[in-house]
Amino acid sequence: MKTKRGERLAAIAPFLWLGVFFLFPFALVLKLSFSDQALAMPPYAPQIDWSAGLAGIRAFMSALDLETYARLKSDDLYLVAYLSSLRFAAIGTLLCLLVGYPIALGMARCAPNTRNILLLAVILPFWTSFLIRVYAWIAILKPEGLLNMGLEAIGLPGLSVLNTQAAVYVGLIYCYLPFMVLPIYAVLEKQDHSLLEAAADLGSPPWKSFWQVTVPLSLPGVTAGALLCFIPMVGEFVVPDLLGGVQTLMIGKTIWTEFFANRDWPSASAVAVVLLLTLVIPIVLYQRQQAKALEAGR
């Protein structure tokens, strides 16, 4: 009996976690997005009047509305910011993949000892503060930074990279690369080497085997890595803020403006809710389709 109860507890633990740390906060944010801005502490209305009991809750419910969402619709700023963020995240994820895949592949093909050292090298930067690492890029990319000093030393003209989109992509790749490398590495490392031998045996030269065998089999890792990069990149605030220039419009900044500059928590919440939905819906659809594909295969 006791073990059964323990098992049941273990089974609901993830749901408990999801409920406490995701659904409940999300419900709060959702509720907030239906509220109105107010000059008060906290700066929104209505508040539930618990002392009035059921009537208080009823009054609270009736004061909620969709005004903030109407605003999101009325100004194309939000749409543009969403699209721009999605584009940044998509290109950033793609670049991470292009840089990260060869790294993961190289690691997976190394001797186990070297592998651990490389793994450590990938994780090591995480031991320093995220902000310090981004600031370091400022020092590298600024007009008189390390990059241009290096270029000058070999007689090349300097580049103006800082405060451009290129700098944002450099920052995004740098910060999110491990999230791409590790899942791909995990899949590649487990890959059966005899599959490549089989492909070679059946007449496939190495580069073709890479595309026909290695890549398709690493897709779960690629998907995981892409999601791990793409989702936080959409909401990324620090990297574009520090490395980006004037033309960098991203949804993270929009939420910041709503929350801090406009002091409009309901609108900020609405932007966040829509952001979450734009991210969650494709993922859910993707998983559905994956499940169906698995089903169909049986």
Partner: peptide, 10 residues
Amino acid sequence: NMMFQSYALF
């Protein structure tokens, strides 16, 4: 062509 011990099916 070779038939692998583990079969090595894709």
